[in-house]
Each structure stands twice: as structure tokens, then as C-alpha cells.
Design a protein around this nucleic acid. Structure first.
Lengths: 211, 211
DNA sequence: GGCACTTCTTGACAGTCGTCAAGACTTTCT
DNA sequence: AGAAAGTCTTGACGACTGTCAAGAAGTGCC
């Protein structure tokens, strides 16, 4: 338990805390890479350490146990993930532009970060079995729901007609589209990217028009 | 390798094959119970055997290895799952009746078989990491898509307007709704059941009307 | 340089895992 | 009845897991 910094010298203490936090983040990055490659079930601490430049013992110096490490990873994932689409909402000048920008961004995410997202779905599923990550997973899920809702409500405003679904339903529908596209993309199904883009545009239109 | 039945006596051979297949199914049922309780990552062969009336060694008498056992389980799950909603399609006399019957059945499934469905999502996710179950998972996923499409297309016919989405998109959307409801239901969120029912009805309506 | 403290490596621990082989028990056939 | 085939248990194996403690290596301060 050397995480508690010794002495009373403020500057040094702060610097050490920063170094400590930095290394935690660095190790979490290695862990995330490993997890996204192997999945939760097949990822061991030794494998994570091997994907970093340290030995396996160091993980217990920076994290109490495996649960704390993975929880920290999940939080780090969230920080990078949630704000990703907000720029689109801000810069889009028309409904059409927002729709196209959003759909393109979704397809881009699928192409670039597929392995990271399969990890997200893996961990969200673990929360269905295990209590440990549940709170963090639910918090991330809520953030994603809000992110989707910022898109939908802004699109509704630009389109001039009210959104015709709750935030929760809207999130569930887009999430379903994305997850299906992820499965198809990772199993070599051609057209997953363009199908997702088309599906997202279609869904966004339908979510702001009365039946 | 005593699965190959000796001699050339047809009746006996057939009876032994049946017994063999029966025990396989019985063990697979124990495995499914265990998997749905613990999830893929935490289920061991010894735990499965302990949830049956046999010892752990017998699993290797009936299944070559763990992969074959779980693959067999996935197949067994499918057989029971896919035809579940077809009765509704057959008996529904009006669009309204079909819509309500389908939504009620979805909510019922969520309430009764939540643990089984979290296992399905767990295994589908494993297919994103591992080659082994991929083919079976994709086959089941396609069956589910077709099942959903039978509902949607029949509803469209009864409602008198064509379905406004592809089978794949329709499946993705309903799957998204169900998965969100599952997460909420299993994490103690009240209203998951009724929200799902309402969401399903709303989505079904929207899928057969022009934008 | 010597000292206090942090950081990291190494090696071990108790436990679990999938797998398999030897043999006991049961059923079936002759 | 005895022989043969099928079924199941037991115990072991090597490999792997999370965890931890002892101590080496590195860092900064006097």
C-alpha cells in the first residue's frame, strides 16, 4: 500500500501522485488492448502484463485486484468514447448534414474501433452475470443514451418536427443496428459498413416523423 | 470412442444410439442451466457435472471437448427458441391482435427466460472473439431474423401496408429493444417489462407505415 | 556517498482448469 | 451362466489462474 505518498512535501507528493495515475492509465491502456483482442473470458493478468512493458507483478502494485483493474479500464474507455459524436451535433448546420454526419461517424467507428466495441458489448454482458462492473456499465450505458439523444433531439429541432420516441427507445434502436453491423463486420460480411450507414439515416428520419 | 456402436444388429444399435443421444441432450440441458446461471466465462465442466447427476468425467464420454459440448448446447437452445413465436403469427386474426400478442409474448419471454437470453447474448458475443461457435451463432441469428420477419410481414399484410424495412433492420431494431429491456430487467429496473411491451408495439406500427 | 522511498521483478502459493486413462460397475447378448 | 460391450467414477497430469511477499533496481534528497 505505497499509494499513500509519504512525507509532507506538497510538490513532490503531487508529482508522485501524477506519476502514479499516469502509470495506472498506461497499464489500463495495455489491459484494454488485450481485452479487446481476447475478450473478457480469455484475458489474464499475465497476458495483460505481456502486452505492456512490465512484468505481471506490477499490476498488483497499481491495482488492488483484477476487478479494480477492469473497472478502471471500463471507466477509461468511457471517457474516450462518450464525447466522440458531440462535435457533429455542434457543427451540423442542417438536418441533412447532421443525419449524414452521424451515419458516417457510426460507420467510421465500426470500421476503426470494431474490436473496442466488441469489448464493450462483452463487458456489458458480464454485468448481466456479475455484480462487480454493473454500476460502471450502467453509468456508461446511460451516457451513451444521452449522447444518442443529443443527436436525435438536435436533428428533430433542425428538421422542425418533434422526436417521436423516448431517449431510451432511441438508444436501444441505434444500439441494435450497431451491434448487428458489428457482428456482420467482424464475421467478414461485406456491406456491413454501408448497410449501417443507410440504416442509421433511415432510422433517424423515422424517429422524428409522425407515424 | 465407443460412440460407434458395435455389431450389426439394427434394433439394438438403434436403441443404443437413442440412449446415447438422450444422455447427450440431458447433459446439455444441465450445461445450459449452468451457463445461463454463471455465464460463459465462469462455467467449468466440473460445475456443469455438479449441476447434473453425473461426475465430471462423463462429459468427455459424451462430448469430445468443451467446444463440442457448448456447440451442442447452442444448437439445443436454438431448437427450443426459434419456433416460439410462430403460433402467434398463425392464430392472429387482425393486425391489432398480432401486435398485442407479439408484444405480450416478448414481455413474457423476458420475464420467464431472462437468464437464458443473457446466455444467448453472451455466446453471440463470444463468437466475436472466437471462431469456434461462430457458424452456429450466425445460423441461430439468421433464424431469429426470419422469425421476426414472419411477424413483421404478416403484420404488414394484416395492416394493409407494406413493411418499410428490410428483415435485417427489423431484426436489429427489435433485438436492440429486447437487449435493453433485458439489461434493465436483470438490474432491478422496474417497468422494464411494460416498457418493452410498449416499445415493441410502437416499433411494429412504425415498421409498416411510410415516413 | 549514504539514506529513505518508490517502483518493479521474480518466484512461489493454493486453487482451478480441460483432458485423459485405468478400472469398476451395469447392461446386453449368447 | 459367462463374455462382451457400454457406461460411469475416480484420480491424476500439466498448464494456467489471481494473489502475494521478498527483495532487487531505480529515484531523489541530505
Amino acid at each position: 500500500m505505497t499509494q499513500v505518498v509519504g512525507k509532507n512535501q506538497e510538490r513532490i507528493s503531487r508529482r508522485q501522485v501524477d506519476k502514479f495515475a499516469e502509470r495506472r492509465a498506461q497499464l489500463a491502456a495495455s489491459a484494454l488492448r488485450t481485452l479487446s483482442e481476447l475478450g473478457y473470458a480469455r484475458t489474464s493478468l499475465r497476458e495483460i502484463a505481456q502486452n505492456s512493458e512490465f512484468s505481471h507483478g506490477v499490476l498488483h502494485y497499481y491495482f488492488r485486484d483484477k476487478v479494480e483493474l477492469i473497472t478502471y479500464c471500463v471507466r477509461q474507455y468511457k471517457a474516450e468514447c462518450v464525447t466522440r459524436y458531440d462535435q457533429i451535433v455542434i457543427t451540423a448546420g442542417s438536418a441533412e448534414e447532421l443525419k449524414h454526419g452521424f451515419a458516417t461517424a457510426m460507420a467510421g467507428t465500426l470500421r476503426e474501433d470494431a474490436t473496442m466495441h466488441r469489448l464493450w458489448y462483452d463487458l456489458r454482458n458480464q454485468a448481466l452475470f456479475e455484480e462487480s462492473f454493473r454500476d460502471d456499465v450502467l453509468e456508461i450505458d446511460q451516457s451513451l443514451e444521452q449522447m444518442i439523444w443529443r443527436i436525435v433531439s438536435q436533428y428533430a429541432e433542425l428538421a422542425g418536427s418533434p422526436a417521436a420516441a423516448s431517449p431510451a427507445v432511441a438508444y436501444a434502436l441505434f444500439d441494435g443496428l450497431f451491434q448487428q453491423a458489428l457482428l456482420r463486420h467482424l464475421t467478414g460480411h461485406d456491406g456491413a459498413l454501408s448497410d449501417l450507414q443507410a440504416g442509421v439515416e433511415q432510422l433517424l428520419e423515422r424517429l422524428v416523423t409522425y407515424a
